[in-house]
Design a protein around this nucleic acid. Structure first.
Lengths: 111, 111
DNA sequence: CGTAAATATCACTATACAGTAATATAGTGA
DNA sequence: TCACTATATTACTGTATAGTGATATTTACG
C-alpha cells in the first residue's frame, strides 16, 4: 500500500507561490542580508545595490507572504526575517547544487 | 564574530533558478506524480491533466535542471526524479505554510 | 507652519515564460 | 514501405512581474 500524498490544485498553487517568492536573486539577497539582523530600507538598498523603489516593492511582497515582518521606528521601516525556514530551503538548494556541480566537474575529468 | 555567508550574484542566480523550477504548480504536480515511481509522458499527461506539449516542455526544463532523469524504452520516454532533495524542499514549505495558516486561523478566533 | 528624509505607491516598459495548436521526429509493426 | 504512436519542437499568444522614474505619504525637526 503506497503512502499516497494527494495535493489539491490549491495546495500546489500555494507551495508554488512560496517557491516563487524565493525565485528572485534580489529577494534572496535581501533575505540573506536580513539574516544578519533587522535592517531599515535605506541600508538594504545600499547593501543590495538595487533601486529604492525596487527594494521597497520586494519587501512588500515578502511582507505579504509573511516571510519578513516590519516595525516602524520614526521615519524608518525596519524589516526582519519572520520565517526562518527560508534559510533551510536555501541550505537544501545549495547542497543540491554543489553536488550537481561536483558531479559535472568529475564528468569533465572523465570520471 | 559573525558567521558571514557572502554569496556571489552568480550563486544567487543559481539558487533563484532552482527555486524557479519549483515555482510552477504543473511542474510540482509532475514531480509529485513521479514521486510514486518513474512514468512515461503519456501517463504523466493523464495524471496531471495538462496538455502534452506543456508536459513535455516542463519535463524538458526539469531535465535540463537535472531534477529529473530520462530513459528511452522503445517509443516511450520514461522520466524519474533524479534529485530527491526537491521533496525535502516541498516538505519544508508545506510545514511553514501550515504554521502560517494555523496562526492566521487562530487570529481570526481572537487568540 | 516649511523643509527634509525615509518609505511606499503609481504608471509604465521590458522581459520571461506558461499554455497551446500544429508540425516534426523517431520508433514499431504490418 | 506505409501507417500508427509517443514525444519533442516550433511559433505564437497572453500574462505575470521585475525594474524604474516620478510622485505621494509619513514623520521628524527647525
Amino acid at each position: 500500500m503506497k503512502e499516497k500524498v494527494e495535493l489539491s490544485d490549491e495546495a500546489l498553487e500555494m507551495i508554488a507561490g512560496r517557491f516563487r517568492q524565493m525565485a528572485d536573486p534580489v529577494r534572496l539577497k535581501i533575505l540573506y542580508t536580513l539574516g544578519d539582523g533587522e535592517m531599515n530600507v535605506t541600508d538594504l538598498v545600499k547593501a543590495t545595490g538595487a533601486g529604492q523603489a525596487n527594494v521597497s516593492k520586494h519587501l512588500g511582497t515578502l511582507l505579504n507572504a509573511e516571510i519578513v515582518a516590519r516595525r516602524k521606528d520614526g521615519l524608518n521601516a525596519i524589516y526582519r526575517v519572520s520565517d526562518e525556514t527560508i534559510f533551510k530551503l536555501c541550505e537544501v538548494v545549495c547542497s543540491s547544487l554543489k553536488t550537481q556541480l561536483k558531479t559535472r566537474h568529475d564528468v569533465l575529468l572523465g570520471l
